[in-house]
């Protein structure tokens, strides 16, 4: 076909080429206009996402260290992954210790954020007046940057008596606690600030879900019973299932990726997985291969959790139908 086309083109010259071109244009009209808009963004995405992903995946099998490029790698092995799962190796120790901190963080934050978010959303909804004002008042601290909230953590939980929490303890007759020097109390301090300023992001999603519940359902329920808590647990909560699933998933994923507080507040023994990855990748000697392997194991965890969550959510939906 090619040869005939080119032969014809030679014979009739420019005219035929033009007609093929217009035919092509007419036939792929939609595609041309669509890809002319999304072409550059898609290429962009391929470079900074797809290629980056493949690069990181391949790098995780190498012993790349000291630099970021294939010239720093010599062999392709599974060693990086084996190290993570081999009991007693130094990589396994640091990874699973970091994992412990991360999992504790994730569990506590997920429960606290969601319970508090739900409760506050319910209370704000039940207000007759001024609900929006409270929503606005409660939400803004969650927009503050990690640098600022780390600074606030450091002042609230200062190791001497200048911190409020130490002053409360002293006022109650206790001894000054060196909050940020002990891993457990340091983690508690980070969690407290993170929760107290951040739970309103969940609150917002819960609030929008709770106001979308049809009013007549609640009215019908309140005719049956006087107890507000019964209405809440029997009617409101089941109708908010989608928001709860979404929020839990978001909290878990956020929790697994936590880095800010641990990095910005200097303390021993509170290393999260993301901080470990960051340190392995960028602190000398940058063990790029090992860092990428950590990142992929973390990604695997997040991926499995979101799959499980999806399955649970999907099952319940079908059972209701």
């Amino acid at each position: 076909m090619n040869t005939t086309a080119s032969g014809e083109m030679k014979r009739t010259g420019n005219g035929l080429f033009k007609s093929i071109f217009t035919k092509f244009r007419r036939r792929f009209k939609n595609e041309i206009s669509a890809y002319s808009i999304i072409g550059i963004p898609l290429i962009w995405w391929v470079i900074f996402f797809v290629i980056a992903f493949i690069w990181a995946f391949l790098a995780s099998f190498t012993d790349m260290r000291g630099g970021y490029g294939w010239e720093y790698a010599t062999t392709y092995t599974f060693n990086n992954y084996i190290n993570i799962f081999k009991a007693g190796s130094q990589q396994a120790n640091s990874f699973w210790n970091a994992m412990k901190v991360t999992v504790i963080w994730t569990l506590v934050m997920t429960v606290l954020n969601n319970v508090m978010g739900l409760l506050c959303a319910f209370l704000i909804k039940s207000l007759k007046k001024g609900g929006k004002v409270f929503l606005a008042l409660l939400f803004w601290p969650s927009l503050v940057s990690a640098v600022v909230s780390a600074d606030i953590t450091k002042t609230l939980f200062a190791n001497d008596t200048s911190g409020i929490f130490n002053q409360i303890i002293v006022a109650c007759g206790g001894n000054v606690v060196a909050w940020l020097e002990n891993p457990n109390t340091a983690l508690f301090a980070m969690m407290f600030v993170s929760f107290f300023f951040g739970f309103c992001q969940k609150l917002l999603i819960y609030y929008s879900s709770i106001i979308s519940i049809p009013e007549n359902y609640l009215e019908a329920a309140s005719l049956e019973t006087n107890s507000k808590s019964k209405v809440f647990f029997k009617i409101t909560l089941p109708l908010m299932k989608n928001a709860i699933v979404l929020n839990t998933l978001l909290s878990i994923i956020e929790g697994f990726k936590i880095l800010g507080p641990m990095q910005l507040i200097p303390s021993e023994g509170t290393e999260s997985v993301m901080l470990l990855i960051y340190k392995t990748l960028f602190e000398a000697p940058s063990k790029v291969g090992q860092g990428c392997a950590y990142a992929f194991v973390l990604f695997l965890f997040i991926f499995i959790i979101s799959l499980v969550q999806k399955k649970i959510a999907g099952k319940e939906e079908t059972s209701i139908e």
Binding site: F53, W55, F282, C292, L298
Partner: peptide, 12 residues
């Protein structure tokens, strides 16, 4: 998560 590609984006 974008964090997986931290090193790769740096390299890019």
């Amino acid at each position: 998560p974008g964090e997986v590609m931290l090193a790769a984006n740096y390299k890019l």
